[in-house]
Amino acid sequence: MKRIVCFGDSNTYGYDAITDGRFDENTRWTCVLQKLAGPDYTIIEEGLSGRTTCYRDPINEGMAGMDYIYPCLMSHGPFDTLIIMLGTNDCKERFSATPKNIADGMKRLVEKAKGMPVWNGVPDIIVISPAPIRKECESSFVAGEMGISSDKSYQLAREYSIMAKLEKVRFLDAASMDMNTIDYMHLSAKGHRQLAEMIWEELQK
């Protein structure tokens, strides 16, 4: 049985912007991926709303992925594949991070994960660039939380792709995934299924 850890933020947690709740097990991309993969795989959810790659949030504690990835992965090892989808929260105006800064944060996570004694064989990491934050988000009800964040989010895919090539890890771009029209930042139910299907296709390679 192959074990896959999915390390991410609210889009991995399954936040539903329409209900301000959480998508159920028939909708979240991690759960859809489990159904696509079948009994030969165990998909492990590790999503936290607000999580960043490495930035400590002065408002909300425990959000830096770099601080948590070691105990997280050690508790789930051994496993075969690590999927990391982060970067949306790094775009928040209060962090003042450039797209390159955010990619460097992702690089730190990748390098730390590679060196940990948690792998069934050679480390296999899939880095996913999250769907960009649409410009409408900056005038939505979460504008006060996110600030000016849209433009840099559209540059993450390029920076992540460069980083992934240098680190010799797999890369996927979630730019085409469907988003909700409430906060223009979180995946819709359709987007969750699209993402699961994209990841499953990559896992079969």
Score class of each variant (00 low, 15 high):
2 K>H: 09
3 R>M: 08
6 C>N: 01
12 T>V: 15
14 G>I: 12
15 Y>W: 15
17 A>N: 03
17 A>L: 03
18 I>D: 13
24 D>W: 07
28 R>Y: 09
32 V>H: 03
34 Q>A: 14
36 L>T: 05
42 T>R: 05
43 I>H: 06
45 E>W: 01
46 E>D: 13
47 G>F: 02
50 G>I: 05
50 G>D: 07
54 C>P: 00
54 C>G: 04
55 Y>A: 13
60 N>L: 13
60 N>G: 03
61 E>V: 07
64 A>V: 05
70 Y>I: 11
73 L>Y: 09
73 L>I: 05
75 S>T: 08
76 H>Y: 14
79 F>N: 08
85 M>N: 06
85 M>I: 14
87 G>H: 01
93 E>C: 02
93 E>A: 14
95 F>G: 01
96 S>M: 06
98 T>R: 01
102 I>G: 04
111 E>Q: 14
115 G>H: 01
116 M>G: 10
117 P>Q: 03
117 P>C: 04
119 W>E: 12
121 G>E: 07
122 V>K: 11
122 V>D: 12
123 P>T: 08
123 P>V: 10
125 I>M: 08
125 I>C: 11
127 V>C: 15
127 V>W: 01
128 I>R: 02
132 P>T: 03
135 K>Q: 10
136 E>M: 10
138 E>Y: 10
144 G>S: 10
145 E>H: 06
146 M>N: 03
148 I>L: 15
149 S>C: 15
150 S>Q: 00
151 D>R: 11
157 A>E: 08
158 R>D: 11
160 Y>H: 12
160 Y>N: 08
160 Y>I: 13
162 I>P: 01
164 A>G: 08
170 R>M: 07
175 A>E: 14
184 Y>R: 03
184 Y>W: 06
184 Y>N: 09
186 H>W: 02
186 H>V: 02
186 H>S: 03
187 L>Q: 01
188 S>V: 00
198 M>F: 00
202 E>N: 11
203 L>E: 02
